[in-house]
């Protein structure tokens, strides 16, 4: 079932482009140490000149500062020979150059490296929130849709209520109260505000399936509820659940960026949202530093578009009416 579904996804032009974009970003995130020229928080490059490795029992004997972004420290070591450490400080707020293709930020961090490393946090938050929310929604909707009765009434009532409470203000207020800053709280907050959307959609799908002939027949033949739920309803929910997963991942990624941009994330973590936060705090916009705030937003938009493209394809697969004539 899942295999066939994936095969169809790959054969659809739109979703193939989407999967390729998403795959490229996942690859970038995984290979960040190889792709990024510097670590995300590096503001200098240290090179050791002269012979011998540095050792513990060393003593600094000389310090020269030939220019603003260069220090030369000379050490004497008892076990090895003397050596020199040359420290190149990255320029602050630099324009794009060969050394820093997207320039540097106010603390001298290489923005391209931050962009590459930032993909890890942004993708992780997006995808894990999407996954978690979808699983919760799937569980709730199966319970609600299949058991029906009072359980369903309660779940669907609360879904409908939470659905109309605007999510972003709720997230902002919760985030403002939580004193702990970081990735985990953001994921939790995103989950709290996102769960009603897929739950409502998946529940109505369960209801539709429940009334399909094949499920009715099984039910009338006295099949166990667990069999009906897991073997007959669940497999038919895959495409719609996948669509919700991508939609929610995209929402989560946008939500994360927004919270971080407002300063409600952990600003010490490097993600696309925090790059934008620092760009805004340091007036990147009005100093014309487009290389600072354009790339993270574009990256978010590209990943978002890949989700949208995949979802277009899933829609077309599951709803023949949407197919091209």
């Amino acid at each position: 079932m899942i295999k066939g579904f994936l095969r169809t996804l790959v054969s659809n032009g739109k979703s193939l482009v989407g999967l390729l974009i998403l795959g490229a970003f996942i690859l970038i995130a995984l290979l960040a140490p190889i792709i990024a020229p510097y670590p995300p928080k590096a503001d200098r490059v240290e090179t050791v000149v002269a012979l011998g490795p540095p050792a513990t029992n060393e003593e600094q004997i000389k310090e020269e500062t030939p220019s603003a972004d260069l220090d030369i420290l000379t050490y004497r070591s008892t076990t090895t020979k003397d050596y020199q450490k040359v420290i190149h400080y990255f320029p602050l707020r630099a324009k794009p150059s060969a050394a820093h293709i997207l320039g540097t930020d106010q603390a001298g961090h290489d923005l391209f490296s931050q962009l590459v490393w930032g993909s890890r946090v942004s993708l992780f938050v997006g995808l894990s929130t999407g996954l978690f929310v979808t699983l919760v929604a799937l569980a709730l909707s199966l319970v609600s849709g299949y058991l029906g009765g009072i359980v369903d009434d309660v779940i669907s009532f609360f879904t409908n209520v939470m659905l109309v409470i605007p999510g972003l203000p709720l997230m902002i207020v919760i985030a403002a109260y939580i004193t702990m800053r970081g990735v985990a709280p953001i994921i939790i907050i995103l989950c709290i505000s996102e769960w009603p959307y897929p739950t409502r959609l998946l529940r109505s799908q369960v209801l539709t399936l429940k009334n399909r002939d094949f499920v009715r027949v099984s039910a009338s033949l006295g099949e166990r509820t667990s069999f009906i739920v897991f073997r007959e309803i669940l497999p038919n929910m895959i495409s719609i659940a996948m669509a919700e997963f991508f939609a929610m991942s995209m929402l989560a990624m946008l939500g994360e960026a927004t919270l971080e941009f407002i300063g409600l994330g952990n600003v010490a973590v490097v993600s696309w949202g925090t790059i934008l936060f620092w760009a805004q705090t340091n007036g990147a916009l009005l100093s014309g530093a487009w290389w600072w705030f354009l790339p993270p937003g574009l990256a978010i938009a590209l990943v978002g578009t890949s989700f949208v493209l995949i979802n277009f394809a899933i829609d077309e697969i599951s709803n023949p009416r949407l197919r091209k004539r």
């Binding site: 941009f261 916009l285 009005l286 938009a301 978002g304």
Partner: peptide, 21 residues
């Protein structure tokens, strides 16, 4: 669909940068 996947605030920044700044 492409524009929809922009973060709002970022799209605002882009408009400010190009049209206002």
């Amino acid at each position: 669909s492409f524009i929809r996947s922009f973060p709002y605030f970022w799209f605002g920044l882009v408009l400010i940068y190009f049209l206002a700044f």
